[in-house]
């Protein structure tokens, strides 16, 4: 084996090891690096009480109710397997709407309700002109099985 081939093997091995290290880091951090809890995570692992967390999922169709005071909004977040009722008082983002993705920052109450202090709209990977959106699609990005 010539020195050059030895160096090539070593360099390719190093590159392979680095890429595998990256992939391992990805899968090991899967839980810690999650940006938000989904309703089914909360059902499986229990309520993360007493600290600020994010809850993410789809706003359930027909669930958005505005209170009489004009600023409080009640809605239900779903990930297709479990649901969490959310209450938020404030200005909702422009893209906040039913059957669309949302990430709520706030806290869980002991009764399983989520009190949001801030709402972020989550956009999905579908882009289309308005005339195509007439055939309104159901966004499924946040449902774990549809993610692949």
């Amino acid at each position: 084996m010539k020195a050059k081939h030895q160096r090539l093997t070593l360099a390719l091995l190093a590159l392979g090891a680095v890429v595998v290290a990256g992939l391992l880091a990805l899968s090991a951090l899967k839980d810690q690096a999650a940006f938000f809890y989904a309703p089914s995570d909360v059902r499986r692992d229990g309520l993360p009480l007493g600290r600020a967390v994010r809850l993410g999922g789809m706003v359930e169709g027909g669930s958005v109710k505005r209170a009489a005071d004009g600023v409080t909004v009640h809605f239900v977040v779903t990930d297709g397997q479990a649901t969490t009722p959310v209450v938020f008082a404030g200005i909702v983002p422009d893209l906040f709407r039913e059957k669309s993705g949302v990430v709520a920052e706030g806290r869980f109450e002991p009764n399983g309700h989520f009190v949001a202090s801030n709402l972020l709209a989550k956009h999905d990977e579908k882009y289309m002109p308005p005339e195509m959106a007439g055939k309104m699609h159901e966004t499924k990005t946040l449902e774990p099985d549809a993610k692949q």
């Binding site: 990805l26 989550k122 990005t141 993610k147």
Partner: peptide, 24 residues
């Protein structure tokens, strides 16, 4: 070479983690 560890992480971050950024 070591820095390329980030490339698969950036690429698959939106697939394997739940993120605010949309999927590919």
């Amino acid at each position: 070479i070591a820095g390329s560890v980030l490339l698969p992480i950036i690429r698959y971050s939106v697939v394997w983690w739940n993120t605010l950024h949309q999927g590919p």
